[in-house]
Design a protein around this nucleic acid. Structure first.
Length: 283
DNA sequence: ATAGGCACCTGGTGGC
DNA sequence: TGCCACCAGGTGCCTA
């Protein structure tokens, strides 16, 4: 799923019903997702107040008033469904339970948040809030692309040692946080860089150009997610994927959108993932 | 240390 | 309708 913009959209959608609210009860319907849930997860969540909902890379962190933070990863297919809450002028009734509803948060304010994840690549854990950054899953993640420490000097340096294709390098969460297959494809398309080009063989200028492009690609997608929030509030409360159109991703065989190009978009496989690109525009 | 491939899961789609 | 192959937005872990 969910790359940084989708996770941020989910966070923003959950914030109005979860931030400052207390968890009356948490139904944990199976012992694990990708990994076993922590011991007594349900008990440790019950009665806890969520002080803040934040995001680090593709993880959502709910800081509780118990000294712990609930870490949530949506994996490939994780969704959050909100019901029973007043969202704008709409209230969504609680839906019938569905297959793959693995964890359900019943909030004291009447809202219910259902985590549904068919493929179960998602994860939840409880960590000490103070040391959350040192958690195994978070400790080796690189800078937030929309944050101050992600700049041209950083990226130039980080890629200078990478002999792998730029596609893989940008997918590497240790280089930059939150990019996934879609937004790497979109970024390289806008930067006119071939996904197969070796990261350390790209000129300094072109690497530098990636920084504002990454920021723009992600910001645009977050903005699109923001407008989808208005829609889901009116529709069904489902915080999952949102409608978003891409310039290259998923457009194999269609014509390149670059003015005056119009050549066919190609799909190749790099380390098991599809890369979509225009061989004419991207060098 | 680092790069590549596999594994973990379910569901949807398209071809025969 | 059924069966099969292939595809999917992630990422930890194992192997060279």
């Amino acid at each position: 799923m969910p790359e940084l913009p989708e996770v941020e959209t989910v966070r923003r959608g959950l914030a109005p019903v979860m931030e400052g609210a207390r968890i009356a009860k948490a139904d944990v319907n199976r012992p694990n997702l990708r990994w076993p849930f922590p011991d007594k997860m349900s008990e440790r969540l019950t009665g806890a107040k969520i002080e803040r909902l934040r995001r680090r890379s593709k993880y959502i962190l709910a800081d509780l008033d118990t000294g712990e933070s609930l870490l949530i990863h949506l994996g490939m297919s994780g969704r959050m469904l909100i019901s029973g809450a007043q969202l704008g002028q709409f209230t969504h009734d609680h839906p019938a339970p569905e297959k793959h509803d693995h964890v359900v948060f019943h909030m004291e304010n009447g809202a219910r948040i259902t985590f549904n994840d068919p493929r179960r690549f998602g994860a939840m854990d409880l960590l000490n809030t103070q040391t959350a950054d040192h958690h195994k899953l978070l400790s080796s993640i690189g800078p937030e692309p929309l944050g101050n420490s992600f700049d041209e000097a950083y990226l130039t340096d980080a890629l200078s040692a990478k002999g792998s294709p730029i596609k893989s390098a940008l997918l590497d969460q240790a280089i930059v946080a939150g990019l996934g297959n879609i937004y790497v494809c979109e970024t390289l398309y806008r930067a006119r860089i071939s996904p197969t080009r070796k990261a350390n063989k790209i000129s300094k200028q072109r690497v530098a150009s990636l920084v504002p492009i990454i920021r723009q690609v992600l910001s645009d997608a977050i903005e699109a997610g923001g407008s989808s929030l208005k829609d889901f509030r009116q529709a069904d409360g489902d915080l999952g994927y949102f409608q978003h159109s891409f310039d290259v991703y998923g457009r194999e065989g269609e014509s390149c959108k670059t003015e005056g190009c119009g050549k066919s978009i190609k799909r190749i496989v790099q380390s098991g993932r599809s890369s979509f690109y225009c061989p004419t525009c991207q060098r």
